[in-house]
């Protein structure tokens, strides 16, 4: 085929495409997905804007709770993900606010804090509900976070009661407050059942680097650790390879290491989402820190199901865990919140 024929062919295709483009009546870009909101005016329309892909566990928890509410018919729901940290969050939020006019926008403000708050201030009629380490703002900017230190403490009780070597490994992301308080609560639990035990803490300085997390776990195993807390992905693999027990984090991660994952702290955004739905429906949305809705008493945090692994846990430890669990639920026991970098971490 000569270049002339090739050029002719492409020109032909281009012409067809252009003609087709002209033939289609210039309908306004009515978003088809937005129509259900119009058909069912009684159900509020919620939107979510995530900096990471929804496959990332943190944003995944938020997305799942919103999707569930949509499946139950409480809201209509759409989302945009993988917005990143390159200055795109502000534009996306403004476009969503202008074009979609949702009743509420959920998302994570981490890494885009100023941009999210700027947009929220410009759209006072939309409820902004964002994951953030900072406080609520104005009349329409509520914050939440994963407050799963309570189940982390319960995991610590189990770890302390089960270690034989008296060395326990913890691999975390960054030494930031929301990670520190989980790890510190875990350590508190360990110390309660086993004051002798030593807890090794390593931060991989990444939110998602399974290879680095696994490497950190392996060196903790070399240093004698015989039970691991996988604050981040990758650690459970090391536990499986060395036939050790491990705790997951954030979601039920039993499937990552059946027979090895005992349990783990689980975050559940449904109580937060349901509360906001009620507020929006009732027209009573106000900015507030929604942290209570991510804690155990309100169902926002829990211990992952044991999947039969409770048989491996000594009965007295299991009884203590159950006792503390019910005390926490009833408000009789308060897990200490310590957001400083854990002692002896590296």
């Amino acid at each position: 085929m000569t270049i002339k024929r090739l050029a002719l062919l492409t020109l032909l295709i281009a012409t067809v495409v252009l003609l087709a483009a002209c033939a289609v009546p210039a309908a306004p870009v009515a978003a088809p997905a937005a129509q259900p909101a119009a058909e069912q005016p009684s159900v509020p329309f919620f939107y979510a804007a995530f900096a990471t892909p929804i496959e990332e566990p943190w944003d995944g928890v938020i997305h799942q709770a919103l999707q569930k509410a949509a499946d139950e018919g409480k809201i209509t729901y759409e989302y945009t993900d993988d917005i990143g940290y390159s200055g795109d969050m502000e534009r996306v939020l403004r476009e969503v606010a202008e074009q979609k006019k949702p009743a509420a926008i959920f998302g994570d403000a981490f890494g885009n804090e100023e941009a999210v708050r700027r947009v929220a201030a410009d759209y006072p009629d939309i409820a902004f509900v964002f994951g953030s380490g900072f406080g609520p703002a104005g009349d329409n900017f509520s914050v939440f976070d994963n407050w799963i230190h309570e189940p982390a403490y319960l995991c610590g009780l189990i770890a302390g009661g089960m270690t034989k070597s008296n060395v326990i490994g913890v691999v975390g992301g960054y030494p930031v407050p929301e990670v520190n308080r989980i790890i510190n609560a875990f350590i508190d639990g360990v110390k309660e059942t086993n004051p002798e035990a030593k807890v090794l803490v390593t931060f991989i300085n990444s939110w998602f680097d399974p290879a680095a997390a696994k490497e950190a776990a392996l060196s903790q195993i070399d240093a004698g650790a015989d039970i691991l807390f996988a604050e981040r992905f990758g650690v459970i693999e090391a536990a499986v390879e060395n036939d050790l027990y491990a705790f997951g984090n954030m979601s039920d991660q039993y499937e990552l290491g059946p027979g090895h994952v005992l349990t783990g702290p689980v975050w559940n955004m449904e109580p937060t989402v349901n509360y906001v739905i009620e507020q929006v429906k009732g027209g009573t949305f106000t900015s507030q820190d929604l942290k209570d809705f991510s804690m155990m008493a309100k169902g926002g945090a829990s211990l992952a199901p044991y999947h039969g692994m409770d048989e491996k846990i000594p009965a007295d430890i299991l009884a203590l865990v159950e006792q503390r669990k019910s005390e926490i639920m009833q408000g009789l026991f308060r897990v200490n919140i310590d957001e400083a970098a854990p002692a002896g971490s590296s």
């Binding site: 870009v29 978003a31 088809p32 997905a33 759409e78 945009t80 993900d81 993988d82 917005i83 795109d88 534009r91 996306v92 476009e95 969503v96 074009q99 979609k100």
Partner: peptide, 17 residues
Amino acid sequence: LLVGGDQIQITMGLPAA
């Protein structure tokens, strides 16, 4: 192209990729 890519994810539910 980058700005429009975000746009079609919002209005059409297409992946931004």
